[in-house]
């Protein structure tokens, strides 16, 4: 059988090959240095022993620090920090997923049905996602402290020790609908009107239409958010640093926050960076197979579009 002729620029042309090579060269070098080398160096750093700031052989201590209580170069690493932050990260992921996703889907369904004000709601819901988290956090904190809480409209103390985690999650969810609603509505809009009409002829009401037609069609987007959210669960800070600045309390410190803030504090000292490289590696080893497992489970048991 005759092979199909290859389609593409630069077939058997030396000048084209040179052009291609020159253009891919710099981005490829950038990738090799800032992705491949950086990640490889993380592995090396995680196993490096430092003596007086100089690399001095191989060690497992950078991992061990996280399961005992240690001080390296004045920075404390301990198991209560680690397990506490893992717990906060898991809890935050579950809360944001269980509230944010259903609400986002319902909002998108309203817009998909082209109900009154759908366009304006869509723009307004998107607005917080284009604004910086810091100004929004300042405004939210001031409004809840000065006007809404503390005996203003409500007796509720938003930023007391007991309520600060709730307030942080409320802020995260309140400002999180932009991208998800945008993607859900775009996906829902591709549903053929005939399917909806035939469901109506069969007597489906709004809830049945949502559950049996709209949700399965939009599930691929839910799947994307579930996957990216899961993969990012241990790097997401849920605005803890934005809201609580340099010293966030333990009950709002996620693993992402612990890692980021730790690296920021430790960046003057090579020895102090080692345990954070080790923690990053440890988390990657745990998250990668779990992410693939989740993907497999969603493909096998999730809704199918057809």
């Amino acid at each position: 059988m005759q092979k199909a002729k290859k389609v593409g620029l630069g077939q058997n042309n030396a000048k084209s090959r040179l052009f291609y090579t020159l253009l891919v060269l710099l981005p490829s070098i950038q990738f090799l240095i800032f992705y491949v080398y950086v990640n490889f160096n993380t592995i090396i750093l995680a196993f490096t022993k430092f003596t007086l700031g100089e690399a001095d052989g191989f060690t497992f201590n950078n991992f061990k620090h996280w399961f005992t209580s240690k001080h390296v170069e004045g920075i404390a690493y301990n198991d209560s920090h680690l397990w506490g932050s893992v717990g906060v990260a898991l809890k935050s992921y579950v809360i944001s997923f269980c509230t944010g996703v259903p609400l986002g889907l319902f909002f998108s369904y309203y817009m998909f049905k082209k109900m009154p004000g759908a366009g304006a709601f869509r723009i307004l819901l998107f607005t917080p996602s284009i604004l910086s988290a810091t100004p929004l956090a300042i405004i939210f904190v001031q409004l809840t402290e000065s006007v809404i809480g503390n005996g203003g409209w409500l007796e509720f103390k938003f930023w007391s020790l007991d309520h600060q985690y709730f307030s942080m999650m409320f802020f995260c969810i309140f400002t999180s609908f932009g991208t998800s609603v945008l993607m859900y509505t775009n996906k829902m809009d591709s549903i053929a009107p005939e399917i909806i009409e035939s469901a109506h002829l069969d007597g489906a009401n709004g809830i049945k239409e949502f559950w049996y037609i709209v949700l399965p069609q939009a599930f691929s987007i839910v799947q994307v958010f579930l996957m990216t959210g899961f993969a990012g669960m241990f790097t997401n800070q849920y605005n803890a640093f934005t809201l609580f600045s340099w010293t966030p309390p333990d009950d709002v410190t996620t693993l992402g926050m612990l890692l980021w803030n730790g690296v920021r504090k430790a960046n003057e000292s090579q020895a102090a960076l080692g345990p954070y490289a080790a923690l990053g590696l440890l988390v990657t080893i745990v998250v990668v197979p779990l992410t693939f497992l989740l993907r497999w489970a969603l493909d096998k048991f999730g809704w199918k579009e057809e």
Partner: peptide, 24 residues
């Protein structure tokens, strides 16, 4: 290869490379 790299990097989450980035 480039296309494959993009897909792999997007799918595989790598956590905590900042320490190494700062060192570099």
């Amino acid at each position: 290869i480039i296309y494959g790299i993009v897909i792999v990097v997007m799918v595989v989450p790598v956590v905590g490379a900042q320490a190494s980035e700062i060192q570099l």
